[in-house]
Design a protein around this nucleic acid. Structure first.
Lengths: 122, 122
DNA sequence: ACTTGACTTAGAGTCAACTCGAACCCTTAG
DNA sequence: CTAAGGGTTCGAGTTGACTCTAAGTCAAGT
């Protein structure tokens, strides 16, 4: 598929897709004879995974590292697993922290609610 | 307390604290006769709240807006409440999304685990 | 034949949120 | 008296992740 369709399927702008290729997050993108990119389902699958890593706060540089490992073949399976496990641990910790923040915000909102009901600030 | 102690109590660098004052996140910071900032417990409380908003993804500009409302007194209570409630809703949604991402990552890690056990990739 | 529009590249510009540097002022210890 | 160490201001520089521009190619439609 062309960059337009790939862009609309992934929600990533064509500009950003080219940028991702330039910095090495996307590799071996097939080209048509006219030089246009021709993305595959496999590319879609990889990009979806990249988005997941990115959305959970992994910097592009570390995703790049993962892409490197992937490129090196099955001898790096264990290292990729370690990388993902470390990331999952961070994510779990971050979720706990965000939950604490949310609880605390909800407490504050409850204070606002009762302050407004009583017509003044606590 | 001086900027050094305030910095170490909040975990925010002195540089950043001055920056926060410059952009209006910190206001009415008391000064000693020599011009040095003299932070109070109230400042600490406010900064802690600002950190919570920031850590849960609120842009500084919106925190600034909240600071404006706060400055305007009790007539803005309802609006501040709405602002916090909208933020809490976003945060709950983001937590759900992050949890889905985590589940998906854990699935992938499980695949790695079994691939490594079998000595090859799925 | 020409225009339209999707694509290409290299490289510059933007934005949020810091982060740092330079030049300077005060107070206190030796 | 002076040097160290903490503070001050203003403004410039950095970082990560885009985002856009300019100049060009190419294929299809009128």
């Amino acid at each position: 598929m062309n960059i337009r369709e790939f862009s609309s399927r992934t929600g990533i702008s064509a500009h950003t897709l080219r940028y991702y290729e330039k910095i090495g997050l996307l590799r071996h993108i097939h080209r048509l004879p006219n030089g246009h990119r021709d993305f595959t389902e496999k590319d879609l699958h990889w990009v979806t995974f990249v988005q997941r890593l990115k959305d959970t706060g992994m910097p592009l540089e570390q995703i790049h590292r993962y892409a490197d490992l992937r490129e090196m073949g099955d001898t790096t399976l264990a290292e990729r697993q370690r990388l993902l496990e470390a990331h999952a641990r961070n994510l779990r910790e971050s979720l706990r922290q965000q939950q604490r923040h949310l609880d605390s915000l909800e407490d504050k909102i409850a204070l606002y609610r009762s302050a407004i009901k009583r017509g003044r600030f606590p």
